[in-house]
Structure formats: structure tokens, C-alpha cells
């Protein structure tokens, strides 16, 4: 089956310290070359902490950032953002901060109408019909359309953000921390709505979050990012039940949950390496309990650590360790 989305060697480097007449002195590798594929109807969870490159990846996938290297294929065809009319029907984006993603000086209707008018040249009646349709899909009352963004709570605004993403009938939606700004009780409403919409429209999701528990609750497969690289990739239940990368394990153990004891030992300071002077070997080496000489000298490649799991580690926890 042709993957809904396939990325090969996608990377992004930002120039650092560029002046008016000077070329950039150095580069910050926000995302090391990564390759992933997502099957139609699948939810791929992407989890990582701040500075791991997850938002950079999301912005490249929707064409808000130009990749430094690599290709993006959608249903086997190269993704071209020059024609937004086509690209907007392929992939859509739901923003992290629902209120900030709406223009404070426009009514919701004005915001929703823009893509329909600009991209698809729909007349007023057609626009109205389509907006009513998506508003019903996300359980919002039509009278909300004539209000301004500040009149909405975070949960309502995020529904509006989702409705906007649905307007162009996309196949793939990139959800960038869609619930992290929301209260717990509202978070569950939005996650369930996303699940319903996926079933109804046969959508494919890329669900990006820092919250392992949330990612686990919605994903089929999960990619764990650390310092701009995928460190572990595999089916969601396997990743959480049997993490093979020490970072995934740390992440899983750190997630606070009722009835779970605090991590007693205080591991090495949880600092990321300096992006201007990245380490030679594994980026996690300084924090890793299993670190050896080779970890500091060469960066490990992503390789199979189980039947379905991959990890970028010189000393992965094999399936045998669990017994």
C-alpha cells in the first residue's frame, strides 16, 4: 500500500549569528535527517520534550518551513506547497495555541471563509454551506461564527481550529500539541472529537505532543524525538510497555501518574547539549545510565531492536532484558 505520507532524509538547519553583510557563522541542526512513513488511516504519535525538533518537523510537513534536505511524498507524489490549492487538500495543520491562531480582529466566519474564497473561489452560498457542515462536525453552534476569538474558551477555540483544518477536506492533519493548552476535562473532549472525526472522514493524523500519556492514548505508532533525531520508533503499546531506548524509558518513568512513586534517584541534570557545539556521539550520552566509550564517539543509527521496534542506541534494552 502506498503510504499516505513518506518522508526521506528530511532535515532542517538554521543559520546562527547572521548579520547584515556577514554570512552565517554557524548552523544549528534543528532536525537531523529523518525518514518516516505513515499509512493511510494511521495515527503516528511524535513525542519529545522542548528542543527536540518536533515543531520544526511539523512546520516543514505543512510547508511553513523549507526543508534543508530530504523529500516529502504524499501518496507517492512529491509534496509541492507552491500550489496551496492542492497542498491544502493533502495536508492541514492544527496549531498549538488555539486563541493565538485566530486573528483577534476577525470574526470566526471571516477567518473560516478566507481559504474557501482564496483557494477554491467558492461563492457565498457554497462557503456558507461548507462552513456550517464543518461546524456541525466539530459540535459547535453556528451562532459562534459571528463572534470574535477572545469570546471563546481554549477548548472551543481549538474546535474552531480543527474545523478550519477540515474545510479543505484534507487527507492528513498535522496536530501540533493540540491539547496542551487545555484543561484536563476539556482535553479529553477534544481528543475524543479527533478520534470521531478520524473515523468519519478516514483521516490520517500526525499527533505531536510532549505528553507521553496523551500520545499513547491516541496513537497507533510512536516516534520518540530527542535533540532533533528519532531515537525510537515502533507500535505505541510496545514503546510504552517495552521501551528499548534509555531516553524513552526515562520519559515513561518521569510521567507523573497517580499512585506512581517519584523517581528517587536524581539523574544527571536534564539539560540538552549545546546546539552550536553538538556532541560527537549520542546526544543522550551525558544523561544515559548505560553510557560507554562508544556512545561518546559515534552517534548510533536507528536499527531494529525487536520485531516491530527500532531504536538509535548502542546498548538498547533488548526484548530479552525484560524477562
Amino acid at each position: 500500500m502506498t503510504p499516505a505520507l513518506q518522508i526521506d532524509g528530511l532535515s532542517k538547519a538554521f543559520p546562527a549569528g547572521r548579520g547584515l553583510f556577514r554570512a552565517a557563522r554557524a548552523q544549528v541542526q534543528a532536525l537531523h535527517p529523518i525518514s518516516l512513513s505513515v499509512q493511510p488511516g494511521e495515527t503516528l504519535g511524535i513525542v519529545g520534550e522542548s528542543g527536540c525538533g518536533k515543531t520544526t518537523l511539523a512546520r516543514m510537513l505543512v510547508g511553513l518551513l523549507k526543508p534543508s534536505t530530504g523529500t516529502i511524498l504524499i501518496e507517492g507524489k512529491p509534496f509541492d506547497t507552491r500550489d496551496r490549492r492542492i497542498s491544502s487538500q493533502q495536508i492541514q495543520y492544527v496549531f498549538q495555541d488555539p486563541i493565538s491562531s485566530l486573528n483577534p480582529r476577525k470574526t470566526i466566519r471571516q477567518t473560516m471563509e478566507t481559504p474557501l474564497r482564496v483557494l477554491f473561489g467558492m461563492d457565498q452560498a457554497a462557503r456558507r454551506a461548507r462552513i456550517d457542515e464543518v461546524f456541525e462536525a466539530v459540535n459547535l453552534r453556528p451562532e459562534f461564527l459571528d463572534r470574535y476569538p477572545h469570546e471563546f474558551s481554549g477548548g472551543q477555540a481549538q474546535r474552531i481550529g480543527i474545523a478550519r483544518a477540515l474545510l479543505a477536506r484534507p487527507k492528513i492533519i498535522v496536530l501540533d500539541e493540540p491539547v496542551s493548552a487545555l484543561d484536563v476535562s476539556v482535553q479529553a473532549q477534544v481528543l475524543n472529537l479527533l478520534a470521531d472525526l478520524k473515523a468519519e472522514y478516514g483521516l490520517t493524523y500526525l499527533f505531536i505532543s510532549h505528553d507521553l500519556a496523551v500520545v499513547e492514548a491516541v496513537s497507533d505508532r510512536v516516534a520518540v524525538l530527542y535533540f532533533g533525531a528519532v531515537v525510537e520508533l515502533g507500535p505505541a503499546e510496545a514503546i510504552f510497555a517495552r521501551p528499548t531506548h534509555p531516553y524513552t524509558r526515562l520519559l515513561a518513568q518521569s510521567a507523573p501518574a497517580p499512585g506512581r512513586p517519584l523517581l528517587r534517584r536524581d539523574p544527571a541534570p536534564a539539560e540538552l547539549p549545546d546546539p552550536l557545539h553538538p556532541p560527537l556521539g549520542c546526544a543522550f550520552a551525558a544523561r544515559c545510565p548505560k553510557v560507554t566509550q562508544i556512545c561518546r564517539q559515534s552517534a548510533p543509527a536507528l536499527r531494529a531492536t525487536g520485531e516491530t521496534q527500532l531504536a538509535a542506541c548502542h546498548h538498547p534494552d533488548g526484548l530479552g532484558d525484560q524477562a
Binding site: 511553513l64 496549531f95 495555541d97 491562531s101 478566507t114
Partner: peptide, 10 residues
């Protein structure tokens, strides 16, 4: 983000 959203809306 609303400026990004506007760019995405073509």
C-alpha cells in the same frame, strides 16, 4: 500563529 494560518489558507 494566526499569520501562519493565513499563509496556509493561501
Amino acid at each position: 500563529e494566526f499569520i501562519d494560518a493565513a499563509r496556509l489558507s493561501g
